[in-house]
Design a binder for these strands. Structure first.
Lengths: 116, 116
DNA sequence: GTGATACATTGACAGATATCAATACATGAG
DNA sequence: CTCATGTATTGATATCTGTCAATGTATCAC
């Protein structure tokens, strides 16, 4: 028995060639830096990890506040940063909002770090 | 004909299990966030790319200032940030200092982003 | 409609960060 | 030792970022 993805997955276009393949241009560097910046915070990393390890790949925002030990507005802020960077997606379900990782986004970053 | 590595490569211990494998603890999250933060700047990304694409894998600091278009102290600062994060190594050679990427460090970050 | 619940936004503030000019330090040449 | 060169450090400043309390907004139950 197979389920459709819980959350709609946005299309992800690769930021650039791997760092080790060709010299990064200024524009690509800015874009890539923004994506890494999204992961450059311990709270956001824990959020991503919570989403990525959840079965179904999605978690209600209500279940994210307590595990990271920050206030609700702070968690909401971090989720927005992740969403703006394309690392997570969100979807309203009644009164709740569910968040899920965008595996393709992580894969794109992984590709940027690939060795020569 | 094979050469020894131009720069001594430090040992790199993996920060943590992949984000998608198990929930990231607070301490591991801090450590991993610091490493991603090193890559969360366009100038530093270009520096890493310049080093990674150079044959021999190392470049004189003197050849890094002009390509990134920032002042010498600024470039020196960014190189220090990268070195502190373990992403690059440096070695003095006479009056110059040569910098090189630490491929294992990039690989460790890549591993953290690996899918389930 | 009213009230309750879940999430997002605003505003304020402290701490971090990127940048450069000026200066210090280290190395090799003479 | 002295000087020139390459790199690092210091100090100052503007900008960005993480955080929370307070408030706003959307959805459901009634």
């Amino acid at each position: 028995m197979r389920d459709l993805p819980l959350l709609e997955q946005p299309t992800v276009e690769p930021c650039c060639a791997p760092l080790s393949a060709e010299t990064l241009g200024a524009d690509a560097a800015e874009q890539l830096a923004r994506q890494f910046a999204a992961l450059a915070d311990p709270v956001r990393l824990r959020l991503v990890s919570l989403l990525a390890t959840a079965d179904g790949g999605a978690v209600c925002a209500c279940d994210l506040v307590e595990p990271v030990g920050k206030s609700q507005p702070t968690v909401s802020h971090h989720l927005k940063v992740l969403a703006d960077a394309g690392v997570v997606t969100s979807e309203r379900r009644g009164r709740n909002v569910w968040y899920g990782v965008v595996p393709a986004a992580l894969e794109a970053l992984r590709a940027a770090l690939a060795p020569r």
